[in-house]
Design a protein around this nucleic acid. Structure first.
Lengths: 113, 113
DNA sequence: TCGACGTCCCTTGTGAGGCAAGGTACTGTG
DNA sequence: CACAGTACCTTGCCTCACAAGGGACGTCGA
């Protein structure tokens, strides 16, 4: 809890999966590509051990669909595509996130306005 | 995951304790008072079962100190006061939160700008 | 007097989910 | 053939939100 890295770890909870959905809105991606994209965001850096179970959940929920595609070199990749229900879930999250964000901003005094 | 309430539950993780610290910045409060304050925020509603372990953690971390005070009617109350280290932790959280919030806003497209 | 109720305190058990570490399989390249 | 690179995924641990349960002490009406 007291480590600086542990702080952002706790923050990621509940938002990471929707950040993944948001990334998939711009087109299909495969797992390690997602790790890279998230890793380039300082506060969202994550690992395979986090992402694979997360992607399995998204698939089980029907929010994403997957297709296997040959890679130019190396093993085949499982590409993830945003499904209609995933797009809807992302919409719900956006509303919830804005309300939550504003509440926290007001309470802790980080309101940008 | 798919329930609407479960969504905000996951969001609370990692922020709730700092919302508590922020509330204590304005003066000491006791447990059930904190439950009420948080309950009046739509996205932060929580229960005693959540708050008591959380407050124990804050106390163990030295971020808050407590004093027992007689109540006009009913059993004595344990009042929580923000300690210096808690104020520092809250400062760290503010920086981390702003960075995290902006990243999520940009990724999922809820940027208010 | 005595139980019902209100107001506090706190604990236990469950489940979700992030993460480090480990494991498998295929494809080059030297 | 050995070894590195790339991709997939699982196992076990730990933290934490929450529902449910429980105990102590006071007031008040029957």
């Amino acid at each position: 809890m007291e480590s600086p890295t542990g702080l952002s770890t706790a923050l990621r909870r509940g938002t990471l999966e929707f950040c993944v959905l948001a990334l998939l809105e711009n087109g299909e991606l495969y797992s390690l590509e997602l790790v890279q994209r998230l890793g380039s965001e300082q506060t969202l850096t994550t690992s395979e051990g986090t992402l694979y179970p997360l992607l399995s959940r998204l698939r089980r929920a029907g929010w994403v669909t997957t297709t296997w595609q040959e890679a130019p070199n190396g093993p085949p990749r499982r590409y993830y595509t945003l499904a209609a229900s995933g797009k809807a879930a992302l919409g719900h999250f956006r509303a919830e996130w804005v309300a939550f964000r504003d509440t926290v901003d007001r309470l802790v005094g980080t309101d940008p306005k």
